[in-house]
């Protein structure tokens, strides 16, 4: 009797995620899919996509020697279109030294401090956005595979927990909008599913480039929560969960978003 009750409970537990309104893999849509034809055209044309200016800056930085070691990225990595092909689709990735996941910006900064012996680039600085935009562009059209590493399981679980946790004065979870109401409109703007296929993005509302961390902080402030600090462990966990949730979707960085 007791065992049967436990079995039923286990079944209920297994059924819970679907009941909570998670988006079926076949129903997933990139933010691109929610955009007007004008904004899509802007993204699709490299000569019109403002994110490509950041990519060009990144290309200059890639080949510029920096730090006490007087090394450029290309001194170690060579041609970015070869060495960085598909790299961004794997991030955030497990970093064995810290035994934590790190995102692409943190990876760039580890290279800066360890190999170039240079100061790390500030979060959201134009330099860091330029280098990550350049690197992310090399994964265009490739499927997201972040989260495949079994060592990331606890961090993905933490990110998922955060995604479903109500927060802030408005007491709203990420999932309330991006799973349950992604086909609706907040004050006239499409909500979208929050699939992070194109970061760093050029956002028209920002009139500039920004990372997924900046975007997440914007949402957190929107529900009047205390936004995670840049690079905080919970921030990386949420980034990682979002990327694993978009597993298999094609990357379109640097994306344009409204």
């Amino acid at each position: 009797m007791m065992r049967r009750a436990l079995f039923v409970l286990a079944l209920l537990g297994a059924a819970l995620p679907a009941a909570a309104g998670e988006i079926a893999p076949s129903e997933r849509r990139s933010g691109y899919d929610f955009m007007s034809s004008d904004t899509k055209a802007m993204q699709d044309d490299d000569t019109a996509n403002p994110g490509m200016l950041s990519v060009l800056d990144g290309d200059t930085l890639w080949n510029t020697k920096a730090g006490a070691a007087n090394k450029s990225c290309s001194d170690c990595h060579g041609d970015v279109s070869v060495s960085m092909k598909g790299a961004t689709a794997r991030y955030p990735a497990f970093n064995a030294t810290s035994a934590t996941p790190i995102d692409l910006g943190q990876r760039v900064n580890l290279c800066r401090t360890q190999h170039q012996e240079a100061a790390p680039l500030a979060p959201e600085s134009s330099e860091l956005l330029a280098l990550t935009a350049l690197i992310a562009k090399q994964s265009r059209g490739m499927p997201i595979i972040a989260g495949d590493d079994a060592r990331l399981a606890t961090s993905i679980a933490r990110g998922r927990e955060l995604f479903f946790q109500r927060e802030g004065q408005l007491n709203i979870a990420c999932s309330n909008c991006h799973d349950d109401n992604a086909d609706r409109h907040l004050a006239g703007s499409a909500i979208t599913q929050g699939q992070p296929t194109g970061y760093p993005i050029y956002r028209l509302e920002w009139q500039g480039m920004g990372s997924l961390q900046r975007r997440i902080r914007g949402c957190m402030t929107g529900v009047r929560a205390q936004a995670f600090d840049f690079d905080a462990a919970d921030m990386i966990a949420l980034e990682l969960y979002l990327m694993s949730r978009a597993h298999g979707m094609k990357m379109d960085a640097p994306a344009v978003r409204p």
Binding site: Q165, R166, E167, G168, Q169, L170, N171, I172, N176, C177, D180, N181, M220, T221, R224, A225, Q226, A227
Partner: peptide, 24 residues
């Protein structure tokens, strides 16, 4: 419900400092 509680100040997670301990 996703409707916020406009006159409540407890039971919330991670409220930003500008809004903490204040009703909406």
């Amino acid at each position: 419900t996703i409707m916020p509680s406009y006159y409540r100040i407890d039971g919330f997670a991670r409220v930003g400092s500008a809004w903490r301990d204040k009703p909406i």
